[in-house]
Design a protein around this nucleic acid. Structure first.
Length: 408
DNA sequence: CCTCCACTGGAAACCTAGGCTC
DNA sequence: GAGCCTAGGTTTCCAGTGGAGG
C-alpha cells in the first residue's frame, strides 16, 4: 500500500461520510418514509367504505366465537383489497383480544409462497406448528395442522392473497381441502377463509363445490379513478413529505400514469416514493414531474434486473442467447445457439421441449415476447424477441458467476 | 381443398433431494 | 441405516395445428 492508496482511502471515506451525513441531517423531502411503503396500512382508507363495511359485517360473528361466511374479494392489482382486509382484520383482532376471544389470523400470499406445500407451512407457522421444508406429503402436512386446530380448539381466519395463482397452477386441491376442513373440525374450532383474487375470471377454473363454499360472500373492488388516485396520493404525500416538498402537478402525473393502468394505487404510491428518492438523492428540495418520469424508468429497470438475476441457470443461458440474437429467432434457432453456449460452459443442455417451456416462462415474466406464429410451409413456432432493455438484462446476467464466463 | 413444416403443449415416466418409519 | 414416500424439475413420447404453397 503506497501513499496514493492512502489518499484514495481518505477520499472514499469522505464520500461515504458525506452520504451518511446527508441522510442523517434532516431530509429536505421526507418526513416519514414508512407511509409510502407497500406494507403501510393507512389510518384512514379512502373510497373503500362500502367494502370495509361488508367485510366488517361478515366477519363480526368472530367476536362471539362463531364461524363467519367465507369471503372472496375480487379486483385488479392496487385496488385496495389487501389493505382493506388487513385493516379490518387488525381492528377485529384488537377488539377480539379486548373481549378475551382468542383468534388466529394467518395470512399468506399464494404467489410468494409459490407451492401448495409452502402455503401450508405459512399457515402452520402462525399456529406455531413446525413443518419441515420438504419430505412431508401435502395431506400429511394438512392433517397435522387440522390436528393442532382440533386439539387446541383454535379459531382460525386464513387469508389467501392472490388465490388465483393457486388455482391456475395446482387445480386448487388444498383449496378444496380447506373449504371442507370444517366438516372434520368439532366446535368451537373452525377455519374461516378469505380469498383475495386479482383475476376476475378465476372462478371459472374453480371446481364448483369449492367455489360455492369459498364464495359464500363476494366483494368487488373497482379500480380507482384518476381523481381518486390524486386524493389518495395527496393524503399520503401530506404524511410522507415536508410541507411544499412536492408540487401538485407531480402528484397528478403519478395518478395519471397509474390511472392509465387500470387505477393501480400501489403503482401510484411506488411512483411517488421512487420519485421522491430520486429527488432526494440529487439534492432537490421539491419533487417535480421530471423525477416522476425518471421513476417510471427506474422502477421498470429494477423489475427487469431483479427478474433476470433470480432466474434459474438454464433460463439465464436462454435469455442470454436471445439477447445476442438478431432478427426474430424461432425456438429451433434459439435452441441450437443455446446448446452451443452450454457446450462452452461444460453444462449438460436441457431438451428442446423444456426450453420451449422456459421460453413461455420468460414471456410471462415480461422479459421476452414469444407468440406462436405459423409460417405455412415453414412450420409453426414461437417468434422470439427481447422486450426488456438489453443493458439491464445483461447487467442482471452478469451477477451470475457462471454466465459471466460467456459474456465477454 | 390438401400437404406438410417445425414446432406446440399435454401426459406420463423418470430423477433427485430430502423427510419419515421402523 | 434401509426402504419407503413426496414435491418439483426434467425427459420422453407424440398427437395436434395454422396457414403458405401447391
Amino acid at each position: 500500500m503506497g501513499e496514493g492508496s492512502d489518499l484514495n482511502a481518505k477520499q472514499n471515506n469522505d464520500i461515504i461520510d458525506s452520504i451518511f451525513n446527508n441522510t442523517l441531517s434532516k431530509s429536505n423531502i421526507f418526513k416519514d418514509r414508512n407511509v409510502l411503503r407497500n406494507e403501510y396500512i393507512p389510518d384512514n382508507i379512502q373510497f373503500r367504505n362500502a367494502q370495509m363495511t361488508s367485510i366488517a359485517q361478515i366477519t363480526a360473528p368472530l367476536l362471539i366465537g362463531h364461524k363467519p361466511s367465507n369471503i372472496l374479494l375480487y379486483g385488479k392489482t392496487g385496488t385496495g383489497k389487501t389493505v382493506v382486509t388487513k385493516f379490518v382484520l387488525k381492528r377485529l383482532q384488537e377488539r377480539a383480544s379486548n373481549v378475551g376471544n382468542q383468534l388466529d389470523f394467518a395470512y399468506v400470499n399464494a404467489r410468494n409462497a409459490s407451492t401448495e406445500y409452502r402455503i401450508l407451512v405459512e399457515l402452520a407457522s402462525t399456529l406455531n406448528i413446525q413443518l419441515p421444508f420438504t419430505g412431508l406429503s401435502i395431506s400429511e402436512a394438512f392433517s397435522r395442522i387440522l390436528q393442532t386446530i382440533k386439539e387446541k380448539k383454535r379459531m382460525v381466519v386464513f387469508t389467501i392473497d392472490e388465490i388465483d395463482f393457486l388455482v391456475r397452477n395446482f387445480e386448487a386441491n388444498i383449496l378444496y381441502e380447506l373449504t371442507r376442513a370444517n366438516e372434520n373440525l368439532p366446535a368451537p374450532s373452525f377455519i374461516s377463509l378469505i380469498g383475495i383474487s386479482n383475476d376476475l375470471q378465476f372462478k371459472e377454473a374453480l371446481d364448483p363445490r369449492t367455489l360455492s363454499s369459498l364464495n359464500e360472500e363476494e366483494i368487488v373492488f373497482t379500480p380507482y379513478t384518476v381523481e381518486e388516485l390524486q386524493q389518495i396520493l395527496t393524503q399520503r404525500a401530506k404524511l410522507a413529505f415536508n410541507e411544499n416538498a412536492i408540487n401538485q402537478s407531480a402528484i397528478n402525473l403519478c395518478a395519471a400514469l397509474a390511472g392509465a393502468e387500470h387505477g393501480d394505487a400501489r403503482r401510484a404510491v411506488d411512483l411517488l416514493r421512487v420519485a421522491a428518492e430520486l429527488a432526494e438523492r440529487e439534492g432537490a428540495s421539491i419533487i417535480e414531474d421530471v423525477h416522476v418520469r425518471s421513476a417510471t424508468k427506474s422502477i421498470e429497470q429494477d423489475r427487469v434486473f431483479e427478474a433476470t438475476r433470480s432466474l434459474p441457470l438454464h433460463a439465464k443461458i436462454v435469455l442470454y442467447t436471445i439477447s445476442r440474437a438478431n432478427e426474430w429467432p424461432s425456438t429451433g434457432s434459439i435452441y441450437s445457439q443455446y446448446s452451443q453456449f452450454c457446450k462452452r460452459l461444460g453444462i449438460e443442455q436441457l431438451t428442446q421441449r423444456r426450453i420451449s417451456s422456459i421460453l413461455n416462462e420468460l414471456d410471462t415474466f415480461g422479459l421476452i415476447s414469444a407468440p406462436v406464429i405459423s409460417q405455412g410451409r415453414l412450420g409453426r413456432s414461437k417468434k422470439i424477441h427481447l422486450i426488456a432493455l438489453v443493458d439491464t438484462v445483461i447487467a442482471g446476467l452478469k451477477e451470475d458467476n457462471v454466465i459471466r464466463q460467456i459474456i465477454n
